[in-house]
Write a protein that binds this DNA or RNA. Sequence first.
DNA 1: AGACCACATTTGTGCTCATG
DNA 2: CATGAGCACAAATGTGGTCT
Length: 299
Amino acid sequence: EIIMPFSSFRELNAAKEKNGETLFANPRNAAAGTLKLLSADEVERRALDCYLYHFIGQVPGIDTHWKALEMASQWGFSVSDHRRLCQNTDQIMDFLDYWDQARADLPIATDGVVIKVNSFSLQRTLGMTAKSPQWATAYKIKAEQAVTRLLSVVFQVGRTGAVTPVANLEPVLLSGTTVKRASLHNADQIALHDIRPGDMVYIEKGGEIIPKVIGVDLPSRPQNTLPFQYITHCPECGTLLEREPGEAKHFCPNRWECPPQIKGRIEHFMSRKAMNILGGEALVEQLYSKNIIKDPADL
DNA sequence: AGACCACATTTGTGCTCATG
DNA sequence: CATGAGCACAAATGTGGTCT
């Protein structure tokens, strides 16, 4: 894991301020940006660090995660000092409770604790899913929250015709970013929280990244407002929306003439360099026959 | 039939790079 | 100089299976 410690972040921003440059918003994105820099000198100047968390391959005598980290540390890799070998769930809970507060004193930003099975042979027994191991789980510290005003709700139409309501919010600072928009997912989510334009809403960021509306501050609601009326027609092409019974999302059925659907599909297929897979060619043919694309350059 | 699982898709912000 | 692509991240939803 590559890290920009708070100390590096502060020093870099101090230098930027002195030069009248725009400041980095948060260490996380600054670190991510640094990794894309082409200048090795500039990367060095950013003073990143990195922690080793996992050990690939086998070394005789190293049969637990704990021993692997000790070994890596002896070899000179940076390893987080803040780990504990727990014998039972009570000890795990104590460790989590401790870091809920203590993380404020760490030199880097954290959002939680990873709990792992120590024994490699037990790890092998438990195995992996496609994405993540079955022998490890993450405990996430409660996300930071903010309150702001819901200015309006707009509707986006995706490449599949799915309609997604998105909240336009009074910009508010939340864990290092300015939040202006957040997905409301579907009509049920809006009805569940009884979200109305003009409301003061609670927002938080899942995993410190994705903003999410979690509720309404009812006492501050303006007088004489009505429950939110979900749209019945596509905001892009005016077609009557469809919603299957029991399904969450509304769909615009106008596959071939609704602009964002066409644009979305082209972008999707192009980005996957898969115009020639099933559907790709048919799509282009349809676009030509309907005069939606007059010139190949439109693609 | 319903529970459960894996996996794709969609959503927003800040960053850097390439393009025009 | 402005614009857009692509990336990191999480979680809900949707889809297509398998298991009980």
